[in-house]
Nucleic acid binder design. Structure first.
Lengths: 204, 204
DNA sequence: ACTCAACTGGTACGGGCGTACCAGTTTTGC
DNA sequence: GCAAAACTGGTACGCCCGTACCAGTTGAGT
């Protein structure tokens, strides 16, 4: 649908989006139904079909919002970690940023991955969002490394990103408290790349 | 339900499982409904509730089957690749095994990931399957490396496994033909680990 | 003030779903 | 051969779903 022009309309659309994002995080794709969203937002059923062309549109829009928020959160979290440039310190910073602090956060991240996979089957819109997400993650990691004086080439950045992503998913799904292994793996990777790369981080 | 005792019963249960696995691969979790499975298997609706306690049971059982098959496929594929032990050769072997050859294969793998993520929200059974899958992958990678004379420690094996997994997911979802990047990333990882580890693979 | 578009909210339709039920039929164990 | 257990298949219930419809109300532009 064309975006609402009246103030109340915009507020309602935003409320629906918020509700949809919450539901998406809580219960995944299947939980985003017109009725559930409308109920959660305290609006009548028909509001959802008025502001969104279809259920898919609604869910995709909600995902877009979640994704933006999530990337912003990652950026913020990584910006405020220590500037230490050693492999272990950087690995710890990455894991701390990636591993969800509270259950709600965990849900959001699960939703991200769920929809990432969903994008593999899906229509163009989801596919595009998946790419954006991936690119955003790569950027965030590249910035983190660059700020600490590591100027790795594309392949290395991609390596670290993919590794961090994979580790996050494993931790998320198998719900181990054990972040130790993840830190160890990332540390190993950073150290190995540093050791054989052009740049070198100091120890600890 | 208790397993069928009569011959025809076992055949029917197996047929339902096959149908469920196909549907799971084709359309993901949501596509596995009693009716769809029964139709595909050419059996009446009630057969599904007779042989499986619930929809979840049916879907999980189908996943178990897919997982077993998929791990066997991986093992077989990796067993018959060249024995070359250089980083690039091994990276190529891994990518060749992981990247789906045909659309059906792609669907199966997407289903695996979808259910892996689903397990993060889920009941005990799915969670357990997810762990098995992960462990299986680690084992396969460890074998591949060991057969080629690389005896990496646990952290390194995990690193390669997670990396391979992450790269597969990216290729799968974003559907790039470009396996080049994946090979490059894996090669880089193997080379870096080899360079700073106890073992050393030769070049090319 | 008036008009027209934007918006509201209640309701209805058609369909797929999980699951339950049960009168029949076949197979098995004795 | 016969009873009990395993199995079959048709049908039905109640629920939630996406979407469409439409008579009313509200707000913006002139």
């Amino acid at each position: 649908m064309t975006p609402p022009v009246q103030r109340r309309g915009r507020r309602r659309r935003a409320a629906l989006l918020d509700a949809a994002a919450e539901l998406l995080a809580e219960g995944g794709f299947g939980a985003v139904s017109h009725r559930a969203v409308a109920d959660r937002a305290g609006l009548p059923l028909a509001a959802t079909t008025y502001y969104f062309a279809s259920r898919d549109d609604l869910a995709a829009s909600a995902l877009e919002k979640i994704m933006r928020d999530e990337l912003a959160r990652l950026r913020a979290l990584l910006a405020q970690t220590s500037r230490a440039a050693g492999p272990r310190a950087m690995a710890r910073a990455l894991v701390a940023a990636l591993v969800p602090g509270d259950p709600a956060e965990r849900s959001y991240q699960l939703a991200m991955y769920e929809l990432y996979v969903q994008a593999g089957r899906g229509d163009g819109r989801l596919r595009e969002l998946a790419r954006d997400w991936n690119e955003g993650c790569v950027e965030v990691v590249a910035e983190l490394l660059a700020e600490r004086g590591h100027h790795l080439d594309d392949v290395d950045v991609r390596l670290i990103t993919t590794l961090a992503d994979g580790l996050t998913l494993e931790l998320l799904v198998e719900e181990r408290a054990d972040t130790g292994t993840a830190v160890a793996v990332l540390t190993r990777a950073l150290a190995a790349l540093g050791a054989s790369g052009a740049e070198r981080g100091d120890e600890q």
